[in-house]
């Protein structure tokens, strides 16, 4: 076997090194190109990102505006619902008053008038026990009760006593809401509606117990109905007595 020639070995090594250097150079060129392309892409992405950020900020601002509009619309809607409920309540109150007036003056028959008073007190006010008293001389005498009142009062003095006191104060009087009259009021009495014709006391509707679902209190419409009864029940009873 011939020993390797030293010069040939160096030549081979040089050629190999040169080839390797060329490959490295090519790889370096490719990497440079790749870096340049990536840098270009990064610039492009940065621009896109910046544009998206601007768009996002604009959308955020738009969302804020829309939220404000929505909040205003919801607040308006709430106000409309409240107003609608109020109008509905007023319509119901007016309907109550209309029906009560219509029924009180719908007949001159005494029984019909008493029935109308009873129906108003039971169905519209929500009272389950009461008595209707009418003036006869110096006393208010029981002329109707529903279903039967618990304290058994058949007669109340017309010119003195709790009804007369309440009448002087331009009743109606409601227990727990109004100050107690000077004369003692029977414990069972929940409210008193004095009946007034011109400036005279002609009778009274004395309420004893309310329906349980009323929760022991009267609403605005109940007070309006009581005010209506004060004047119109008195007139209706007077007219029915005149007609009899």
């Amino acid at each position: 076997m011939t020993p390797p020639n030293k010069s040939s070995f160096v030549q081979k090594l040089t050629a190999s090194a040169q080839k390797h250097a060329e490959e490295l150079f090519e790889q370096n060129e490719r990497l440079k190109s790749l870096v340049a392309s990536l840098e270009e892409k990064q610039t492009q992405i940065s621009e896109e990102l910046s544009s998206l950020r601007e768009e996002r900020d604009a959308l955020r601002a738009e969302r804020g505006k829309l939220k404000h509009v929505l909040d205003e619309a919801l607040a308006q809607n709430r106000r409309d619902i409240e107003r609608s409920a109020l109008v509905e309540q007023q319509c119901t109150s007016l309907a109550n008053l209309y029906v009560a007036t219509f029924k009180l003056h719908g007949s001159l028959e005494r029984e019909d008038v008493l029935a109308a008073i009873s129906e108003i007190v039971v169905n519209l006010v929500g009272c389950e026990s009461f008595g209707v008293f009418e003036r006869s001389g110096g006393a208010l005498r029981l002329i109707g009760e529903f279903p039967s009142h618990p304290c058994g009062i058949k007669e109340i003095p017309a010119d003195s006593g709790f009804v007369a006191d309440i009448f002087q104060n331009n009743g109606p009087w409601i227990s727990g809401r109004d100050p107690l009259p000077a004369s003692p009021v029977p414990q069972e009495v929940t409210a008193v509606i004095p009946l007034r014709l011109r400036s005279e006391l002609t009778g009274a509707v004395v309420l004893f117990s309310l329906l349980p679902q009323k929760g022991g209190s009267f609403g605005d419409v109940d007070i309006e109905l009581m005010d209506l009864l004060t004047a119109h029940a008195a007139t209706a009873l007077f007219a029915s007595r005149t007609n009899a």
Binding site: A95, N96, A100, E119, N123
Partner: peptide, 11 residues
């Protein structure tokens, strides 16, 4: 009750 009937009919 004519009163209740009238009221409910109105409502």
């Amino acid at each position: 009750s004519p009163t209740a009937l009238m009221m409910n009919t109105m409502l």
